[in-house]
Amino acid sequence: MSQLKAIIFDLDGTLVDSARDLQDATNALLAEEGLRQISLDETKSMIGDGAAKLVERAVSATGGDMTRLPALVARFLEIYQANASRHTEAYPGVADTLAGLRGLGLPLAVVTNKPHAATMDILEALGLRGYFDAVIGGDTLPERKPHPAPVLMALGQLGVAPEAALMVGDNYHDVQAARAAGVRAFAVTYGYSHKPHAELGADRLIATMAELLPVVEGGLAA
């Protein structure tokens, strides 16, 4: 097994809990359309595959007009990006873990299906931007996770080969993207997974972000 030289993180459900802001923006859109509001649990079940998929799922669940999806996605982005970090918080242990990993000399990246502008706003607001050498959003490339292209783009910016990298995420698309890119994958057992964690196919499950640093320091031994 190659020595670890870089770590790539998912954002929503891995580094930050953004569900409340996503719920607020989705419900503001639904209210404009005269549709019912969705709960926080419903929102969490819809997160992970990008803004367009979130809006599609929400509009479908509330009986909205699916033929207007492109316009509704555009409106959602206007609403969300104006307040992307109002309630969003880093999960416990995230900042300390990122600082510890940087202290080991590891370059770090974020690869998310969230739009790049909102991603940058959140990282800046939470004081996390400085930890990352590359940030790839869901609109940076034509492809999003589970496609490997965003992961490979991050690796290219970091100058690290796939076999020397680790992806840490919370959902199936994170593990699938990592696998397709030839990268090892860990999954956190909090967040917004759409499948049981044991079925994600990750190399390892971690219950808190704080568990990651000692695992990395120990050479990723199982």
Rank of each mutant, 00 (worst) to 15 (best):
Q3C: 09
I7C: 01
F9N: 01
D10R: 10
D10G: 10
G13V: 11
T14G: 02
T14F: 00
L15K: 04
D17V: 03
D17C: 08
D24S: 13
T26L: 09
N27W: 05
L30Y: 05
E32H: 03
E32M: 09
E32A: 13
E32Q: 12
G34I: 01
R36S: 10
Q37T: 15
Q37W: 14
I38Q: 04
T43Y: 11
K44S: 11
M46E: 06
G48Q: 09
D49G: 08
K53Q: 13
L54E: 04
E56P: 01
E56V: 10
V59M: 09
G64K: 04
G64F: 12
R68A: 15
R68Y: 04
R68C: 10
R68P: 07
P70S: 00
P70N: 10
L72C: 09
L77S: 05
L77D: 12
L77T: 08
I79Q: 04
I79E: 01
Y80P: 05
Y80D: 07
A84R: 00
A84K: 04
A84C: 11
S85A: 15
S85G: 03
H87A: 14
T88S: 12
T88M: 02
T88A: 08
A90C: 05
A90T: 06
A90F: 06
Y91H: 02
P92T: 12
P92Q: 14
P92K: 09
G93V: 12
G93A: 06
V94Y: 03
D96W: 15
D96H: 10
T97R: 05
L101F: 13
L101K: 00
R102P: 08
L104G: 02
L104A: 11
L106A: 02
L108P: 08
V110N: 05
V110H: 00
V111K: 00
T112A: 03
T112D: 03
N113R: 03
P115N: 08
P115M: 01
A118L: 06
M120W: 05
I122N: 00
I122H: 06
L123E: 07
E124P: 02
F132D: 01
F132E: 04
A134R: 03
V135M: 04
G137Y: 06
L141P: 04
P142I: 13
P142L: 09
E143Y: 07
K145I: 11
P146F: 11
P148L: 00
P148E: 04
P148A: 07
A149Y: 06
A149R: 07
L152W: 00
M153T: 14
L155P: 00
G156C: 05
Q157G: 12
V160R: 01
V160T: 09
A164V: 09
A165E: 00
L166E: 11
D170M: 07
Y172V: 14
H173E: 13
D174F: 01
A177P: 06
A178C: 03
A178H: 07
R179T: 15
R179M: 03
V183Q: 13
R184T: 10
V188F: 02
T189G: 07
T189N: 05
T189P: 11
S193M: 15
H194T: 06
P196E: 12
D203I: 06
I206A: 04
A210K: 08
A210R: 14
L213W: 15
L213E: 15
L213A: 13
P214F: 07
P214Q: 01
V216A: 01
G218C: 03
A222M: 08
